[in-house]
Design a protein around this nucleic acid. Structure first.
Lengths: 235, 235
DNA sequence: TTTTATAACTTGTATTTACAAGTTGTGTTG
DNA sequence: CAACACAACTTGTAAATACAAGTTATAAAA
């Protein structure tokens, strides 16, 4: 944990402070010179850390002014990089685990192509139903390869983002991905799960997320009730 | 045009070579040392240019290996930055202009907040219907402020991306944006335009794109028939 | 009072240098 | 022939330094 490169350590410090609200929207971060003095690194190294934060959308920079903290929901959401938790701009999103993480074989009709390593190692499967203001909004089905994840089946996922757990406990970061989006008529099951009104369509998403671990991808199928909420994203 | 920073010049050169196919998918770019020798700049400067290409998704890097060109469609599509033209993975997308670019006042019920400058200058309005394989798929309504755009109403938009025209003729680049997505039941008008089957929902998008010109945003409302196609995006 | 100039900040660009770490091909050694 | 070691590449991290360019507050001048 502590043999991270210097720029990365500063990045983690600043990231935490932004996410926990020490620095709030619109605040200026300490200047690059200040940071380099305080954390005893050169300005290029500080800049490297700040560039990473810019890439994350956590800050933006203005020449002559400083590094400015962006609004907290970030909404890097479902459309660019993070998990569903930040996608609707609501931080407290209750989660029901319909199917706890369990090891099984990959489905026959799996819509994505799998590498050999992924194929061999089997998959971890989980289903979740996520609520906004007591109403079910997201239903998601997730498949991940059963590698790098000791004891994942024992972990509690209640009210924690899958992505946070992967990040904190397994040092797995999402670095990219692809997705397909459609508007579809829900099946009866989906309609019941999401408490859909008759005739209400759902937003359907298929996603493949790439991580910093080779051969480790996260596959998700998501159904979203867009009657009262919309998927919001910045890029 | 020629007083760009050095790293930017190299970026433009490499970008063009990738987009025109001089470097193809999977190709290795010249090494950082080669580039710094050939273009007479230091390696940090070369790296700055390459980082920009990585951010664009045009290349990715692998330590010990090199900088590798990514697959050409990029699919930065509708979900991250470009226009609708690259979103379905189909390059030839026929376009009907239902409403030629015309100057008018901003609508009363415009869903986005406008700056004073935008408010004053009036807006350019256009509607398009875009086809994939002879079937209507996209219906989009666009509003842009009437600044920086001399003679835009006279230009032909047939089979050209609005974004290409803005980039080539007005040096306007999209640098970010936000969007909202929903699955909705179509109105009768939308149903007719997109040749929807009864009961077929549509994907609805509201987008606000930010450009390199201050106060110049592009506002789009998009209806997408996702029966046969899906919106595809990488990030 | 209003305007203008300036100084003191900020980030942006660029050079030079050094070593670490991952990849690959080419040897040598068993 | 196969396995290993190594050299020669690649990108990654980091230092120290310099000046350009944009922003802002302050002080001087109109």
């Amino acid at each position: 944990m502590e043999n991270l490169p210097q720029y990365r350590k500063l990045y983690e410090v600043l990231r935490k402070r932004i996410l926990t609200g020490v620095y709030q929207e619109g605040d200026l971060l300490p200047s690059e010179n200040e940071l380099s003095a305080v954390y005893e690194m050169t300005r290029p190294t500080v800049r490297h850390a700040l560039e990473t934060l810019v890439k994350d959308g956590l800050i933006f920079k203005k020449q002559g002014k400083g590094s400015i903290v962006r609004k907290p929901p970030q909404n890097i959401g479902i459309l660019s990089i993070a998990g569903t938790a930040s996608a609707v701009g609501v931080r407290y999103l209750k989660t029901d685990i319909l199917q706890k993480p369990a090891v099984q074989a990959w489905p026959e009709d799996f819509p994505f192509e799998l590498s050999e390593l992924e194929q061999e190692s089997g998959c971890i499967y989980m289903e979740r139903l996520r609520y906004v203001e007591e109403e079910p909004v997201f239903y998601d089905i997730n498949h991940l390869p059963n590698i790098y994840l000791p004891r994942i089946a024992q972990r509690s996922f209640e009210n924690k983002s899958l992505f946070e757990i992967l990040r904190q406990n397994y040092q797995i970061e999402i670095i990219g991905g692809e997705q397909k989006l459609k508007a579809v008529k829900p099946t009866v099951k989906i309609g019941q799960l999401l408490h859909l009104k008759p005739g209400q369509p759902v937003l359907y998403m298929e996603r493949k997320l790439t991580t910093n671990k080779e051969n480790f991808h996260i596959y998700s199928t998501i159904y979203f009730n867009s009657e009262k909420h919309a998927i919001f994203g910045t890029f």
